[in-house]
């Protein structure tokens, strides 16, 4: 089977230091992976192609890169699935949101710095048990989902927030934080949630689900970030725009059946936040001129009693 590759190359030490694409065509077996192709290129066509890889079994997490624009592991992406239907090449690029060192090799130092920031080790208090620490089976089964993270960085590669703000902790580090907040043996939840509640933490995620889609291990980083938001609010960290937003939103839907769009920005930012309230004025004027201001009198939907009853009951058992 003939397979075409288009690889983004970059070598700061050559006379062609700008990144550029190079094309390759290989004869490959049908069951081959994109990583097989890259290794074949490095061994038979161009020995200068730089890439990281090791286990070839989606365990070591070394070969995350962008394949056809999406964060993937090269070792568990089959060429037959990646080949575009129009006969075009498989486009291979280094992982996004990271500095490229050479070709497909990126600088992971900021990635590890962020993972370290969340203190990814068990912190418990009290006397040490005589034998091992005991944790309920179901808790550990739940955590197994997030513990299967192989730190490959595919989620970081595709994170929409990191594209505009490199200070964001990002999906991998936040999923790792959840692994410890969710661990019944860990006693540092309050400190952890307090830190995660700060800027660049849990509330900066835009819920775009790129990380969910990119993760090769089903870790669901965004779902973990949402769980951290819930845990932070339950622990009393409610003085953020994010927490006010989620709380007002839920109350609005729970009591009127639909969103109070007029009040939502005001209540999220906090009515007493004068500077932010003043900033809303030109937005309001522009919207008013276009006839796009939602009705300030937020009427309930027909039959809202049923929604209220459900809201009250399910919120009580939250």
């Amino acid at each position: 089977m003939q397979v075409k590759f288009k690889i983004r190359r970059f070598d700061p030490d050559t006379d062609r230091p700008a990144s550029h694409f190079e094309d390759y065509e290989l004869e490959m077996a049908e069951a081959s992976t994109v990583l097989d192709g890259l290794i074949q290129i490095r061994e038979d066509v161009d020995g200068t192609l730089a890439l990281r890889c090791s286990c070839r079994s989606a365990i070591c997490g070394s070969c995350a890169m962008r394949i056809n624009g999406k964060g993937r592991l090269a070792c568990n992406t089959k060429v037959i699935d990646a080949m575009p239907k129009d006969g075009g090449p498989i486009v291979v690029e280094p992982a996004g949101n990271m500095k490229v060192i050479k070709d497909l090799v990126t600088d992971f130092a900021p990635f590890w710095d962020k993972v370290r920031t969340v203190q990814p080790w068990l912190q418990n208090s009290g006397p040490e048990p005589e034998a091992e620490y005991v944790a309920p089976n179901e808790d550990m089964l739940h955590l197994a989902g997030v513990m299967s993270c192989i730190m490959c960085g595919a989620c970081v590669s595709d994170c929409t927030v990191l594209e505009v703000d490199s200070s964001f902790l990002g999906p991998a580090a936040l999923a790792k934080a959840y692994r410890f907040v969710g661990d019944p043996r860990d006693d540092a939840d309050n400190d952890r949630l307090s830190a995660l509640n700060e800027a660049s933490g849990i509330w900066d995620c835009t819920r775009c689900m790129q990380c969910v889609e990119a993760c090769p291990k089903g870790v669901d980083p965004m779902g973990r970030i949402m769980s951290l938001r819930d845990k932070a609010m339950q622990a009393g960290f409610t003085n953020t725009n994010g927490a006010r937003h989620a709380t007002f939103f839920t109350n609005s839907v729970g009591h009127k059946g639909w969103i109070d769009e007029f009040q939502l920005p005001i209540r999220s930012k906090g009515v007493t936040n004068v500077k932010e309230m003043l900033k809303l004025i030109p937005v309001g004027i522009r919207a008013a001129k276009a006839g796009k201001v939602p009705n300030p009198i937020h009427k309930a939907i027909p039959g809202v009693d049923n929604v209220r009853r459900i809201h009250d009951k399910v919120e009580k058992n939250r």
Binding site: D230, F249, T250, V253, W258, E315
Partner: peptide, 12 residues
């Protein structure tokens, strides 16, 4: 009612 838009789901 509103679907919750993913925001209500953050809480519940």
């Amino acid at each position: 009612s509103c679907t919750g838009s993913g925001v209500l789901q953050e809480r519940n």
